[in-house]
Design a protein around this nucleic acid. Sequence first.
DNA 1: ACATTCACTGGACAGTCGTCCAATAAATAT
DNA 2: ATATTTATTGGACGACTGTCCAGTGAATGT
Lengths: 217, 217
Amino acid sequence: MTKLDKIARLAEKADAKSAKRARKKDELADNAIAALKQLGYARTSLRDIAELSGVAVGTLHYYFEDKVDLITYCVRRYKTGFMADMQSILSGDVAPDQLAARLVKGLALSIRRDAETHRLWYDIRSQALFDAAFNDVVEEIEDGLVRLVSVFLSRTGHTDVEPGSAYLMLDAIFRFHLQKFLSGSTSAPAGFEQQASEILAIITSASKGSAPGRADV
Amino acid sequence: MTKLDKIARLAEKADAKSAKRARKKDELADNAIAALKQLGYARTSLRDIAELSGVAVGTLHYYFEDKVDLITYCVRRYKTGFMADMQSILSGDVAPDQLAARLVKGLALSIRRDAETHRLWYDIRSQALFDAAFNDVVEEIEDGLVRLVSVFLSRTGHTDVEPGSAYLMLDAIFRFHLQKFLSGSTSAPAGFEQQASEILAIITSASKGSAPGRADV
DNA sequence: ACATTCACTGGACAGTCGTCCAATAAATAT
DNA sequence: ATATTTATTGGACGACTGTCCAGTGAATGT
């Protein structure tokens, strides 16, 4: 066995080790998310999370620096998952003129299914207004979301619409109907679909690019 | 002195009494706001507020039911003040075609001057996603804001634009630039002004009413 | 086989929290 | 001047917080 082989073997072992650690970390994060999405950032204690994970509090500190580290990790994790979902909608081979409807439907479904998780995002984003420790995650995720909208706009041919503005519009409507949904309105997802489609039509038709709908035939 | 006089006298006294109590309550609320806008809902303790007010913790409970009562009172108080400011802008005798610019400028100024207070609103609105105790204040205030936008739209002749949608757009842009401003961007208010004007122009020009700018000559 | 690192526990620590209340001081009424 | 109501205090209460660490067993390396 050459020296190089030895090194490779060791590196492999180290990788397997850190991979195992990463898996456990993610497992803990998933449990933490389950707790956080019910209680929110401020009301969820490390003990809540530990109990739900069937683990001692100390174990959490073994995997995460502190509470902020744990929570930012959780938010990052669930939100990238959400973005991947949306990305896959945008990547599917759908006719450009139906992409808006697909996206809006996907978001409406996400309100229905993951409402409690989404509110955690808005909670953290608000916390960032007070605690700079959350600024990085928020900025990072928000950049990703803008990029997502960007992809949507370029796929539908509206390359001159400001992605930042379009993101803000969608986000505002999403947040609002999420709020309604969480306070009992079962029609909120449908309401989102309607209002989002409307606004999307307005801002894309104001663009000097191709008209929305069945253009570029 | 007739019996009626006596009753009137007593009622007067009672009013003066409760007026005094109300004044003190407002005074405490103002101090509480000063603390809350620095630390946010979760991190501000009743002791912080009491200390800043130069008063014992028990005194707070003498005027307010509990922490939630105190905080909702504070949010209501500062936000109605803000709405009155905006209302006065809309009520001033400005030409309709310049009203949008005035409103946007007023909001930009408010980012600059009251950024720390405004973030408290977004904090509470997020809390409402988890704690139903805040639902009423949030809904009440949000209704007021929509009404404000409604006034703006009718004064500018865009009676067919959905006030709810317009509010969401403005709110999203406001919140976003507030966030940038609080994390150090001094150009955020100007950015708000630009983006808000743009979006406002888009949604009002999509309306079937009069065109924005110098129409109706 | 033994030594070493890793994973995890459970409890101690030093606070902080909101709430409550008996005691008291100030204001008001009679 | 005295009785009564109102305003305020300061501390007790029990529960909860994030953090830290000595100790323990399991896994891994040699």
